[in-house]
Nucleic acid binder design. Structure first.
Length: 627
RNA sequence: GCCGACGUAGCUCAGCUGGUAGAGCAACGGUUUCGUAAACCGUAGGUCACGAGUUCGAAUCUCGUCGUCGGCUCCA
């Protein structure tokens, strides 16, 4: 295993399916060694839907090799070797690793170096065991299935790379992923499910539904929102505005860049610099000067300090803190809730970019709440309630609340060095969560640098986990910014701050919603809410259709008229493919009755209805944001 | 950032071991006036991501750059 070694207790609890997936990893290693005996193996655990094994090998394993490897695996399964457990002493294990027999088919000239390292990291006193299947022996705590023949249906899926023990300072290994199920039927179902998931992929739907695009000249991770995508953004912002207004928030606007000094004060530069775009240098005179440019005259060389660095903002908080500081604050002003759908830029590593889910330019549903300590609980609860209200509206029910705390070992490096405040705020937050009866998992070492946080984790269509929303406690920045309020007793005190973004960022949230709805947005969110489809293109019919179009638009409904010469079947097909929510099919019969025929995406033809009734229904559904 | 794979018309893709690019849909021009998922005919559209190199000849081979994807690391 990697540095996150499972305890023996956890291993004993491995499910049957995990056991045989883990056993399949041993069989994979056996097969690879038959072909490449020099391969050095590291860790090969079961994972969701399958297993992997990390190995070091000069030959680059490619998908073309899979057939060959699978054939060897099948031989091993067919041989039905028992998995034999052997307990050994630490010295024996080390000696075996030195003879190269661990993760191997027999003795080798070079030691089993990763196994050696793993043995050295096994805590003193813990039993060390080996597992054998056929000629293959591996260092392994188990457990396994009884025999290789018990392994059901499997298939190798992809090769990737992984750092040994997940540390980028360690060597990179090849990771071979496979998937394994009890039988062929379940395996086939799994692949069918993957095919379905691909259809939901927001990158695919985003292109097909013309929601957003990326362009090489604009830059990687910088999405361009097309009109249909921007329509969704507008609806989300409207939702946030209404919700926050009702909850006593005030909207503010801040700039997209600021001087270096702001981010030094906030602590972002020391803790967050890697994730920020490099600075722009601006001279006091106002002349821009690239860092590497040649000096134009001596005065510049003599005054190198005249350049001032500006950074694109990666977070809205420092700006909001400055707004707090702009006026004298009394305890009577608190809680103060400043909200902004702020645009931020983060220099994410190129390999981390992923469609809309991980971008470099993002608009965050941000707000900062400043409060006295005794207001914390009710503010924090109100924020959580806002989350839950949103999730209910969108029908999001598969999520996990993750309470992220600090790691005392990394104070001053990853986390601000305030051990007492960490303890206080973490206890306070944990207490609020427990009293509110919220289900959560606690994860150490994942906090923000300025305080503990609660993230809401969701999964993309292809199974990647993302933080969709966040609620963070900040005890560090208010002090750094000298934010104070005058309390009842006429003394100045430092407020607590909550950073929260229940709708996350437009990019990630919409990316998620595209997959969540599979592109079939509810009427209120639908990029094109109504398309009017006249049967034929005769003038009276078009006039009637236009009148309905104008009426809908006058009520801010996103409606479109298809006045093309396509046949009605083609018009319907086009609208269905674009997942237009409501189609109003209008023929001569409808016009004469002052009616429209309603067709709803996914529901088919609902028949003719009076024009007024249909329009009234559409308006109320949009207003109530009905699913 | 690292390892690997990939990059052909707006989209989806074909183009074998090098001989100089093709289909369907979309677009455009006509014809069609059609009641619930694709009417017919025609036209146009590509420096084969970009830049070097090998070769008589490169979409095809090599190298580099950019981008995308699968992972790792990281995160809203």
């Amino acid at each position: 295993m990697s540095d996150e070694r499972k305890t023996l207790e956890q291993r004993a609890q491995m499910t049957d399916i995990e056991r045989f997936r883990h056993s399949a990893a041993h069989v994979l290693a056996t097969a690879i060694l038959k072909i490449w005996p020099e391969a050095q193996f590291a860790a090969g655990p079961p994972v969701e839907n399958g297993f992997y094994y990390d190995l070091e090998l000069d030959h680059r394993i490619s998908p073309e090799d899979f057939e060959k490897i699978e054939a060897e695996m099948k031989k091993e399964v067919k041989a039905n070797h028992p998995f034999e457990r052997v307990a050994v002493s630490r010295d024996e294990a080390l000696a075996m690793a030195n003879r190269g027999v661990l993760g191997a088919l027999g003795e080798r000239s070079s030691p089993s170096k990763f196994k050696l390292d793993i043995i050295q990291n096994i805590p003193e006193g813990e039993e060390i065991s080996l597992y054998r299947n056929g000629e293959f022996t591996d260092l392994c705590a188990g457990p396994h299935v009884m025999r290789t023949g018990n392994i059901g249906a499997f298939k190798l899926t992809h090769v990737a790379s992984a750092y040994y023990k997940g540390d980028e300072k360690n060597p990179q290994l090849q990771r071979i992923y496979g998937t394994a199920f009890k039988n062929k039927t379940q395996l086939d179902e799994y692949f069918a499910m993957l095919e379905e998931a691909k259809k939901r992929d927001h990158r695919k739907l985003g292109k097909e539904l013309e929601l957003f695009t990326f362009d090489d000249d604009v830059g990687p991770g910088l999405p361009l929102w097309l009109p249909r995508g921007a329509a969704i953004i507008d609806e989300l912002e409207k939702l946030a505005r209404e919700t926050e207004f009702a909850a006593g928030y005030q909207r503010v606007r801040s700039t997209n860049l600021a001087r270096e000094s702001l981010y030094i004060k906030s602590g972002h530069l020391p803790y967050y610099k890697e994730s920020m775009f490099p600075p722009m240098e601006v001279h006091e005179t106002g002349d821009r000067k690239p860092e590497t440019g040649e000096a134009e005259d001596l005065s510049e060389i003599r005054n190198p300090k005249s350049a001032i660095k500006y950074y694109l903002k990666a977070m809205n908080c420092p700006h909001h803190h400055k707004m707090y500081a702009a006026l004298p604050r009394s305890y009577r002003d608190l809680p103060l809730r400043l909200a902004e759908y702020g645009t931020c830029h983060r220099y994410e590593q190129s390999g981390e970019l992923f469609g809309l889910m991980r971008v470099r330019s993002l608009q965050m549903n941000d707000a900062h709440l400043y409060m006295t300590p005794d207001q914390f609980e009710s503010e924090f609860n109100a924020v959580n309630e806002m989350y839950l209200k949103y999730f209910k509206l969108f029908g999001i029910d598969r999520y996990v609340m993750r309470f992220s705390t600090h790691d005392p070992a990394r104070l001053g490096e990853k986390f601000v060095d305030e051990p007492e405040l960490w303890k206080q705020t973490e206890d306070m937050t944990r207490g609020v969560l427990q009293r509110a009866g919220i289900n959560y998992v606690e994860v150490p070492n994942e906090a923000a640098f300025y305080g503990p946080k609660i993230d809401v984790q969701v999964w993309s269509a292809i199974g990647r986990e993302f933080t969709i929303a966040t609620n963070q406690v900040d005890f560090a920045q208010p002090r750094r910014f000298n934010l104070v309020y005058k309390d009842r007793d006429n003394t100045e005190k430092t407020p607590l701050c909550i950073h929260r973004a229940p709708l996350g960022t437009h990019e990630r949230f919409i990316g998620f919603l595209i997959e969540h709805y599979a592109g079939n947005f509810p009427l209120w969110l639908s990029p094109e809410q109504v398309r009017i489809l006249p049967i034929g293109d005769e003038a009276p019919l078009l006039n009637y259709s236009r009148a309905i179009l104008d009426e809908l638009r006058s009520h801010q409904v996103r409606a479109v008229l298809d006045a093309s010469t396509d046949h009605i079947k083609a018009k319907i097909s086009n609208a269905e493919q674009m997942k237009v929510h409501t189609m109003l099919v209008i023929g001569a019969r409808d016009m004469e009755a002052n009616a429209v025929s309603v067709r709803v995406h996914g529901k088919g033809n609902l028949g003719a209805k009076p024009r007024e009734e249909v329009i009234a229904d559409l308006l109320s559904s949009i207003k109530d944001r009905r699913a």
